[in-house]
Design a protein around this nucleic acid. Sequence first.
DNA 1: CGCGAGATTGATTAACATCAATAGGAGTGG
DNA 2: CCACTCCTATTGATGTTAATCAATCTCGCG
Lengths: 236, 236
Amino acid sequence: MPDLFPHCRECKTRYHGKLAGVNDETLELLDMSKTCNLYKKGQRLIQEGTRPLGVYCIKSGKVKVFKLGQQGKEHITAILKDGDLVGYRAMLSDSLYHVSVEALEEVVACHIPREQFLKSFQNDKVLNKRLITDLSKEVISLTNVVTDIAQKPVRERTAATLVLLNSVYARNNPQGEEEMAEINLTREALANMVGTATETLIRVIHDFKEEELIKTNGRKIIIKDLKALQRIGGIY
Amino acid sequence: MPDLFPHCRECKTRYHGKLAGVNDETLELLDMSKTCNLYKKGQRLIQEGTRPLGVYCIKSGKVKVFKLGQQGKEHITAILKDGDLVGYRAMLSDSLYHVSVEALEEVVACHIPREQFLKSFQNDKVLNKRLITDLSKEVISLTNVVTDIAQKPVRERTAATLVLLNSVYARNNPQGEEEMAEINLTREALANMVGTATETLIRVIHDFKEEELIKTNGRKIIIKDLKALQRIGGIY
DNA sequence: CGCGAGATTGATTAACATCAATAGGAGTGG
DNA sequence: CCACTCCTATTGATGTTAATCAATCTCGCG
């Protein structure tokens, strides 16, 4: 049985995640200062409105990143998985967390304390460049999301969301990865990503199923025609 | 008559803009490499889809930052003014411009070429920290925008947009700045910021006028009750 | 084998977009 | 200075989309 909390050197996420390629010294320092934890489904890693004490590196499992809007309705801004880093925006801008992060299933994540992370961010060129690039890209992508949500109808947004989720739920296949992923989220969560009501989301999913663009297995959604969904979602 | 294209040292934006506080050497280098230009209303500084050759520093006038969505409908993501920097996200992430930037009136802006800007970004601690902080904050703020646009009705978004624009159009008063700004945009542009149809925006503006929250002078909008609008817009 | 959360379907309503028509109002050429 | 014209603003009527409300229905699980 593999170690739940291995040394960063042995962590599988080291090769495909946000920390891929950092230098050995950085890895050593991060490892020394980290605290790993097992989170059960529904447990919170980060709570909106609190002060950031560090950064989480997700080792396994999936989390949802969300914000509460009007009447406590969740808006899910991302689903993150192994290798992803979360919480660094708030730290780098010295502000409170503006989102909450919650485990969707059993999750192992390591907490890297603020000071150590900032130090590594200063000293490690690769990490520095990666995060700056990511931040910039995130701004770009969020701008697109804003435009889309403002202008595209639910059907199109749903298609785009499914395409996005397909790559999140795809296995990290070292080889080819043509097999389609099983998107495993509640309808409510999907609706909260698309930005619509649960019932509306269900109707769109229903249509997609009739049009043979997807199939379902229980609540799991498997994409049958990725190209078509990309076309509907306006993804080029 | 003041020089249209002064040395950065003498540029008024030096004290309140994004470049405030950079060290003298940086300023000298930026000045040497910059190219200043006068843009007439409607002229483009940046065109979506092109490759970033540098960064623009706005010396005077206002520009709109926008993206084309479905059927060529504009979505305006920001109104920028003197002291603002634009175009650095694409450069830092090494991607194409994802937005266009167009002069809303007569604008003077200086172009800082890519290499010089990146060099200054590397070498100047203040600039580096400022941009990273700004990027992080921008991600946070865009996340909020996404949630809002997904969940808040037009009336609330309109109120929030007016509050935002009030500070953009406020004079850069060194002293107090209690006088209300004159927001001078076409109704169409306003609608494209809020993310709604022009007619709908006009009706909301009409309501606000009846409720004495704003007054108008031609197309200019002056806020009469900022607190109320903040409340309606859900700004805390 | 019943319980309960999540999924689904149908009916109704509300918000907003679209279409159509009219009215201002700033800039232009005579 | 005036008439003209185009662009923007405004208002009203109508149509669509999607939210809400109200039942079921289904399935994993104790």
